[in-house]
Design a protein around this nucleic acid. Sequence first.
DNA 1: CGCTTCGTTGAGCCCCATCAAAGTAGGTGG
DNA 2: CCACCTACTTTGATGGGGCTCAACGAAGCG
Lengths: 252, 252
Amino acid sequence: MLSSSRQPIERAGPERIIARLTRLAPLTAPDIALLRQLDDWRHDPPDTHLIREGQRTTPRFLVSGWAARIRLLDDGRRQVIGFVLPGDGIGFCRRPQPMATCALVALTPVQTLDAEPVIEALAAMPDHAPLARAINIAAGMDEAWLMDQIVRLGKLTAYERLSHLILELRCRLAAVDHADDADGLSFPPTQEVLGDATGLSLVHVNRTLRQLREDGMIGLRNGRLKIHDAPALAAISGFRQPRPSEWVGPEC
Amino acid sequence: MLSSSRQPIERAGPERIIARLTRLAPLTAPDIALLRQLDDWRHDPPDTHLIREGQRTTPRFLVSGWAARIRLLDDGRRQVIGFVLPGDGIGFCRRPQPMATCALVALTPVQTLDAEPVIEALAAMPDHAPLARAINIAAGMDEAWLMDQIVRLGKLTAYERLSHLILELRCRLAAVDHADDADGLSFPPTQEVLGDATGLSLVHVNRTLRQLREDGMIGLRNGRLKIHDAPALAAISGFRQPRPSEWVGPEC
DNA sequence: CGCTTCGTTGAGCCCCATCAAAGTAGGTGG
DNA sequence: CCACCTACTTTGATGGGGCTCAACGAAGCG
């Protein structure tokens, strides 16, 4: 098992997708109608390989649950390229025969929604300009998160890496209204997954998280994360909100 | 200085761009005519910041020389996100107001060519389908190289990282006819740059390169690299050619 | 109530960072 | 043509951050 499955399956419709995209570029009525018409759902349990490397992809939205883009090495080592969170697109790509450049694994039970009609509509008629714009901005943000991942792995210490990653995830979850309230926020990845994401060993992830806890930065128990001192975490890790202010909602 | 500038400035026209793209998707006569009409050149010396982070970008081709996409940390630390080689696109982006997600620095004298007319032509008329396809494939490859960079930094040892990076660069250079012949190939990055790219210290890059040399894997002197045992390097580092065979030319 | 998965903690060590200094090669000006 | 400077490369010594091995605790589940 890659992840604990103690989170309840969360019910959500395309409204979350709409909420997120409209924050990136205000959608028009036809855009929203188009998104509401989507109805090809899939539900997959944790550890499902949603996409395999080199396989053809088809565009979908992740509506609820967490997934991870991973690359497998010959000897079984595994690198998490990045996390895919509710509201994110999967396999959006303008190439005619899109091949997955990495695998996608469900970390929790996930709900996904076929987005093929959206892509077709965008290709066919240009009167969905705001929607196209929102999707393009989201793609740009994804690329920026990839670069953040490179900086984490290349230049940050263990303590900084985890601080930085936690802030990224909080920021991205806030953009889909998973604010971290009094209860904290749902944080499903296991320490093994965090290790594969940060290039650290499971053991060292554990020690570093304990350190963050003892320093009063975070609280983490039973898959719930509470961020106590975000400014300190940002100062430690150098995390900055994505720069172009147009990319993000106010609460990021 | 980030780089030695001992390489002669190499003269090349759009033919290199055409050669590369036509290998990705056979271009048609109008495609080629369009590329040959490009004539807005720029020549920049080493260490020029071709793009700054957060700045608006305009699409260009890198025709000759090497550049690096970098991210700067507050404390002056620097991470090389990836290398930009002859034939690569710069700032190709379908967003309406593309902002650079990282800076771009020239490692050698570079020649670039404005690609705005290409983007406009693709947007205006769909009869440049092969060209659009080639550019999309190139973009997909760029994303795949980013993931390779993540795997290098996250999961490989110093010895493996340098082996892997060297093979990637050879592969990409081969795609623009910079084969490594008897003389080896031009390899301008300094050990400092290699360190910033691989997440290693300058000193350790030096030691690891010596190791590779002593093991008979490579020869590297005065900015020329000779790869003696590519299969061994591939076995060590797990490097694989980009998987979809359609992505690459035969000599990659 | 045993099994499985995840989290936690300790001991030892190695890879690689850091500090320091010397060697080499190109470029420039007297 | 030599002296000097700068940028890059090379090598040594030392220490620390993080890995590995090992084992135990905790929690969910059938």
